[in-house]
Simulated scan of single mutants.
Amino acid sequence: MVDDDARGFQAGQSGLIVRVPEAEPLVRAWRDRLDPSARAGVPAHVTVLFPFLDASRIDEGVCAAIGEVLGRHESFEARFDHCGRFPGVLYLAPEPDTGFRRLTEAIVERWPENPPFGGQFDDVVPHLTVAQGQDEAVVEKAEADLLTGLPVFAQVSSVDLLVHDGTRWRQRASFPLG
């Protein structure tokens, strides 16, 4: 998922994401080269919650609860019109990011034992990772190219549950927003 090295992915890990297919034409080639999660099967996305529950704990009841929590949120539009950076990470930033934050907050409120990114960060910033762990020159080239294709507008109407099977990330379910 976001900001994780593909070698660290383990069978049974899960995460909740918002796919951003509208960004794929712009970011796919860069993500395929520069983001290990893309090579592991994760599409262009903004993470709602990672890590989530172990796949062995996800049953019909959990899926129903996810659907109930997410169904209380209306679909929304996001605009990606600039790049941002964390240490070692280049990303597209959604504006506004409020809708993504609310989805994360709602899921964490229901499953507080699963803080975003294992509780590593005080403020979880919604973002669409394009590159991580790359040389600065490569990141600068990618950023310059991305800026020529922005803005990207996305309609957010669902959240997907992905599970790692030991080799790749696979979609297990999709939950529509209200």
Rank of each mutant, 00 (worst) to 15 (best):
M1N: 00
M1F: 08
D4E: 13
D5V: 12
A6P: 01
Q10W: 05
A11V: 13
G12L: 05
G12S: 04
S14Y: 03
L16H: 02
L16A: 05
L16E: 01
V20D: 04
E22D: 13
W30D: 10
R31E: 09
D32W: 12
L34S: 08
D35V: 03
P36E: 09
S37L: 06
R39F: 03
P43W: 08
H45T: 02
T47F: 02
V48K: 00
V48G: 00
F52K: 03
I58A: 09
E60H: 09
G61I: 04
G61H: 11
C63P: 04
A65T: 14
A65C: 12
I66E: 06
G67R: 07
G67T: 06
R72V: 08
R72C: 06
R72E: 15
H73D: 06
F80L: 11
D81R: 03
C83N: 03
R85F: 04
R85W: 09
L90R: 05
A93T: 05
P94M: 01
G99M: 06
F100E: 00
R102F: 00
R102N: 07
A106R: 00
I107C: 01
I107P: 03
V108K: 00
P112L: 10
N114L: 15
N114Q: 13
F117N: 14
Q120K: 14
V124P: 15
P126T: 11
L128C: 07
V130C: 05
V130T: 11
D135A: 15
E136Y: 08
A137L: 11
A137H: 10
E140R: 14
A144E: 10
L147I: 15
T148L: 11
G149M: 06
G149E: 01
V152Q: 01
F153D: 14
F153Y: 12
Q155G: 12
V156S: 07
D160F: 03
D160T: 10
D160C: 09
V163M: 07
D165E: 07
R168K: 14
Q171Y: 01
Q171S: 14
Q171H: 10
A173E: 13
S174R: 13
S174F: 04
S174N: 12
F175L: 04
